[in-house]
């Protein structure tokens, strides 16, 4: 009896906690659908009512804020960085796991050092380097480091290399020896044997890198300045007004809702898979 009571209590406490986690999102989406004039009136609303309207969104689209442009920039940036980062780190991870070449362990240890070097500590030289390369205020300033697998926004390159290397190490040797007997080239072995088997792992890495790039504010803040180049986080910060002007703030709420929507949709569709792959990455990391 007591243990049952205790279990029930745990469920209730966990449930209340879960409510706190979800509440800000509920408030945001509901507020974005309220008529602008009363969007912030108290008591707060947690679910859209009968008076729901698209006024906030309509105002946002009609304003001179190029929200569509921000959205497009974010999409292009996150997609390109993800493709490049995942390709480079997958093939490097494969080499570190499966091939023999000189200084392999020393080079891997060297790459691991980059885990200790947050981008915030190399900010000034990176900026000078990008300026010298003529890439400041161009998406390329963020895409190029991602393409080379040096780092994606917020994520060191060696994270992907490490994750993929650990995966390729778990594959049985025999798979690759058969390919060698067939005298398949190393790239063909990688492409037609290793990559298909690594599908779920590659997908998990892609989701992580895409979300991190989509969400990142720091790198775009430093490297992308003109309105044409801005991505969603920087764009939203540029239109944010001091709270009080309720019509403009409704537009901000609408813009934030639009920015979170893709992540929410992907999560709702694939939540079990995402949670499981994070748990798995955690086991290995």
């Amino acid at each position: 009896m007591i243990s049952r009571l205790r279990t029930a209590l745990i469920y209730v406490v966990l449930g209340l906690g879960a409510l706190v986690m979800v509440a800000p999102f509920l408030w945001m989406f509901t507020t974005s659908f309220r008529p602008v004039a009363e969007a912030f009136t108290l008591p707060p609303r947690w679910l859209p009512g009968l008076d729901s309207s698209l006024e906030s969104y309509r105002r946002l689209l009609a304003s001179d804020v190029p929200i569509g442009r921000f959205f497009w920039n974010s999409t292009v940036l996150a997609t390109t960085v993800t493709l490049g980062y995942v390709a480079t780190t997958t093939i490097a991870g494969y080499a570190f796991a499966r091939l023999r070449f000189p200084f392999k362990n020393a080079l891997f240890a060297l790459l691991l050092v980059s885990l200790m070097v947050p981008i915030q500590t190399t900010l000034v030289p990176l900026f000078l380097l990008m300026r010298w390369l003529g890439l400041v205020d161009s998406q390329w300033s963020i895409i190029v480091p991602g393409l080379t697998g040096a780092f994606a926004p917020g994520m060191s390159g060696v994270f992907g290399i490490f994750l993929m290397r650990q995966f390729f190490l778990t594959l049985p040797k025999e798979l690759f020896e058969a390919a060698r007997v067939d005298n398949a080239g190393h790239f063909r072995t990688f492409w037609s044997i290793a990559v298909p088997l690594a599908g779920p792992q590659i997908a998990a890495l892609s989701v992580i890198i895409f979300t991190m790039t989509w969400n990142d504010y720091f790198m775009p803040l430093i490297f992308l300045n003109s309105v044409d180049q801005m991505v969603l986080p920087v764009g939203i910060m540029s239109i944010r007004d001091p709270v009080g002007n309720s019509s403009a703030t409704s537009e901000v709420i609408a813009a934030v809702s639009l920015s979170i929507l893709p992540v929410l949709l992907v999560f709702l569709v694939a939540q079990r898979w995402i949670i499981d792959s994070f748990v798995r990455a955690g086991v290995k990391g």
Binding site: A92, A95, R100, F101, L111, T121, T122, L129
Partner: peptide, 28 residues
């Protein structure tokens, strides 16, 4: 063949590390 393949496969990551991590670190 294996040596060359291995070095080629890690080359992009290694160059990226040198240019965008190690270089800026030293420059700092």
């Amino acid at each position: 063949k294996e040596t060359i393949a291995g070095l080629l496969f890690i080359a992009p990551a290694l160059i990226g590390f040198a240019v965008f991590v190690a270089g800026p670190m030293a420059a700092t």
